[in-house]
Amino acid sequence: MIRPGLHRLFHLFAVALPVLIFCLPAMAIDIPVPKVELTITQAKYPKEMALSLELLLIFTVLSLAPSLVMMLTAYTRVFIVLSFVERAIGLQQLPPRQILAGMAMFLTFYIMAPTFTVIYHEAVMPFYNQEVPTQTAYAKTMHELRKFMFSQTREKDLGLFFRLSSTPAPKSRGGVPTHILVPAFMLSEMKTAFTMGIIIYIPFIVIDMVVASVLMSMGMIMVPPAMISLPIKVLIFVLVNGWDLLAYSIVKSYHLV
Rank of each mutant, 00 (worst) to 15 (best):
T108Y: 01
L82H: 05
T136M: 13
N129P: 01
I89P: 02
P96S: 04
A101R: 14
I111R: 08
E131G: 12
R87C: 00
I119P: 01
L107F: 04
I111V: 15
F79N: 08
Y128H: 08
Q92R: 13
F127V: 04
A88W: 01
F116R: 01
I99W: 12
T115S: 07
N129T: 13
T134I: 11
L91Y: 10
A104Y: 05
M112N: 04
E122F: 06
P96I: 08
T141Q: 10
V132H: 04
F84L: 02
A137S: 11
P95Q: 07
A123R: 07
A123S: 13
M105F: 14
I111E: 00
L145W: 01
A88S: 14
V124F: 15
Q98D: 03
F79T: 09
S83W: 05
F127R: 05
T108A: 01
A113D: 06
R77E: 09
F116M: 12
K147M: 07
L145D: 01
A104K: 11
Q98G: 06
H143W: 12
Y110V: 14
A104F: 09
F79Y: 13
Y110F: 13
P133C: 04
V118W: 03
Y120T: 14
I89L: 15
L107P: 03
E122D: 11
A113V: 04
L91K: 10
Y128P: 00
K147C: 02
R77M: 07
P95N: 06
T117G: 11
N129W: 12
T134C: 00
T141K: 04
P133L: 02
Y128F: 10
Y110W: 13
T141Y: 04
V124P: 03
V118I: 15
P114F: 08
I89C: 02
T136P: 01
Q130H: 10
E131Y: 06
Y128K: 14
M112H: 03
Q92D: 00
T136S: 10
Y110E: 03
V132K: 08
L82T: 10
Q93T: 07
M105H: 12
T117Q: 12
F127K: 07
V85W: 10
E131A: 09
H121S: 07
Q98W: 06
L94A: 08
I119V: 15
F106K: 11
Y75Q: 09
V85I: 15
F84A: 04
A137V: 06
M112L: 08
Y138F: 11
L107G: 03
A88P: 06
V132M: 10
E86N: 14
H143I: 08
A123G: 10
L94K: 09
I119Y: 03
K140G: 00
H121I: 11
I111M: 04
H121A: 04
Q98A: 10
I119T: 09
L94N: 07
E131W: 05
A137E: 02
I111C: 03
L100E: 02
V124M: 13
Q92L: 07
K147R: 15
L145R: 03
T134S: 02
E131K: 14
F84D: 01
E144N: 13
S83H: 05
L94P: 00
V81E: 02
S83R: 09
A139P: 00
R146S: 11
V118R: 15
K147Y: 09
P114G: 05
E86F: 06
T76A: 11
F116A: 10
A123Y: 05
Y128Q: 12
E131Q: 15
L94Y: 06
E86H: 14
